[in-house]
Write a protein that binds this DNA or RNA. Structure first.
Lengths: 338, 338
DNA sequence: CGCACGGCTTTGATCGATCAAAAGGCGGGA
DNA sequence: TCCCGCCTTTTGATCGATCAAAGCCGTGCG
């Protein structure tokens, strides 16, 4: 493996100084056009590429984003993070950023990772994927002034609009509105909801989408809606049990919308295709079973995450123009009909 | 954010030189015990952590492994890579290695990434996950002396034992032997195989496991085995079609073993639980449907990959002792019975 | 008594880039 | 003519660590 050329080699070859080569790469506008072209040609000819570690040592920036890879969940939505990651890596690369993975068993361990990765200048920002109420990781990051963006809203009241906490999320409420509207338009009058127990921000948000749509479109009473609203744990087996309960309701609901594809799978296995079922997440399973499902637009989420991160951190742009709230993004999902 | 302490700070505080601090971290055995302890205490007290970029600049090693994140496949096995990645990141962390992701649309683009990542000393080894016959990436890596390990055997004849090409793979043949033995012991006499068209190394390997077991245990004629051997594309819909063909065979097979969970899912949807079906990969779908499936031991694969990589690259250990073939590892999968 | 040796520690240079500040060249105004 | 200021380029120092080689000190041996 031959020695890589350095700025000094390029400078000598082009008859300029090291700094000029550096300027051509980093601040081309201050270099005279003629000089710049000459240097660029030499760079191309020698296949020069700056040594990332040397640059990082000097600039104290790594242009690398840390993402935690969760232990694989047993749920069928396991590949969601995978899809998000892919989109993120791709977009990050376009902006000149790299993505570094890490794992951690629990929050203290993850905070230890934050410390390790930032001290060593391995990473200069983090993307957190599963946030929850009273997340200590967020406090640590804010306190240590480490840039970060979360995929997922903080569900605490005050946190939601905290300008120090940048977040991107998918509008689950809108997703269930779409799902519910869809089955209603297809002729269903009584649509049941299969979701998780109250208390999770995400679950409640999705439930609210179904409920508001039903109120608006059908005028069913609160008591009637309560009867159509089932809450079980995130598991296909529980979904099956709940689906059989739904089918036993009199008069029987004509469709079921679910908070996840796991639940939809359970419902589908219990009821077959007698009742239209809509899932959430558009996982490969939904695709394989031919179930309609609400698809999160992970590309857009990844784009939003990077906008916020680079805006806040690189000081460039400061978030896209024309956006009301430059610290937060709510992405609208779409319904995949099958 | 307060300035991080450096070796110089630690050295001054402990009353030793920079180099001694460095030695305590990198070659502790050459430092006198008393001195070492004193330095270690100062390190702990100041929360000193070496600056990774500075070290990399000097040592020309990044202790970082590059892994390509594939565009998400529509198959249900999508989360396989995810699981492997998780295991890899975890094991790598234990050995002091980081995992950096990248994407690439095609082989030339990936080779371009190799060049970029190695020139900048971002990465000093790669793990390739989907290799194929005549893979140009491998040639490039060997030619440029960049360490790498593939998850997946090279199926070319000469390549397989090439000492420059380190690989780890799962013994698919053994996996199908287990699956076939299992249904045979459970009483089935005629077991059909649902696999992919001949020509893919992986697919043929799995088929061979089924066929050899059937020959040994049932003594069916080659022609009879041919009749039980179906090849279709990797898609649940195709699996369903094939499963119906299987059911129409006279006399009807009493069980089906598949080359993937996708095919098993298709078979299950077509046939219900009348016929025992065994899948491959132990994906969440198999779990949700209650299908038995062959589970690749991704932890062991990740461990093998790191052994080979660190052995070859760091010069430490050079592969575990007592292993016949220090350049290659074949991991035995296990059957998850449901 | 002197010197070689081994164990441990220190010194000075270096990795490849960027920062901060100085220097050179040129045109315009006093 | 001289000086100022602007535009462009160069110079020297620096980021934080490790490498290579030298230095120190007590032992052992001729």
């Amino acid at each position: 493996m031959r020695r890589q050329p350095t700025v000094t080699d390029v400078a000598a070859e082009a008859g300029v100084s090291r700094q000029t080569v550096s300027n051509v790469l980093n601040t081309p506008h201050i270099v005279r056009a003629e000089t710049r072209e000459r240097v660029e040609q030499v760079i191309a000819r020698l296949h020069y590429r700056p040594h990332a570690s040397a640059r990082r040592l000097r600039t104290r920036q790594s242009e690398t984003i840390g993402v935690r890879l969760d232990p694989v969940t047993d749920g069928i939505s396991g590949s969601l993070l995978d899809r998000f990651l892919h989109a993120l890596v791709e977009r990050a690369a376009r902006a000149g950023f790299r993505v570094l993975l890490y794992t951690a068993a629990d929050e203290p361990a993850e905070i230890e990772q934050f410390a390790r990765l930032t001290d060593g200048a391995d990473v200069d920002a983090f993307v957190l994927t599963s946030t929850h109420h009273g997340d200590t990781r967020i406090d640590w990051l804010i306190e240590h002034e480490v840039p970060f963006v979360t995929f997922g809203r903080p569900w605490g009241v005050a946190d939601m609009t905290d300008p120090e906490h940048l977040w991107v999320d998918v509008d689950g409420r809108h997703g269930l509105t779409l799902a519910t509207e869809h089955v209603l338009s297809a002729g269903a009058g009584r649509v049941a909801f299969l979701g998780w127990p109250a208390g999770s921000g995400t679950g409640d948000d999705r439930r609210a989408g179904w409920r508001a749509t039903m109120e608006r479109r059908t005028g069913l009473s609160p008591a009637e809606l309560d009867a159509l609203d089932l809450a079980v744990e995130e598991d296909p087996a529980d979904g099956s049990v709940a689906a059989r309960l739904v089918a036993a309701i009199d008069p029987a609901p004509e469709a079921i919308v679910c908070a996840s594809d796991s639940l939809a799978l359970g419902a589908r296995l219990a009821l077959g295709d007698r009742v239209p079922i809509v899932g959430y997440d558009d996982t490969p399973v939904a695709r394989a079973l031919g179930l309609s499902s609400v698809a999160q637009q992970l590309d857009e989420v990844a784009e939003g995450v990077l906008d916020l991160l680079i805006g806040s951190h690189g000081g460039r742009a400061g978030g896209a123009e024309g956006v009301d709230d430059p610290q937060h993004r709510l992405v609208k999902p779409r319904l995949v009909v099958r």
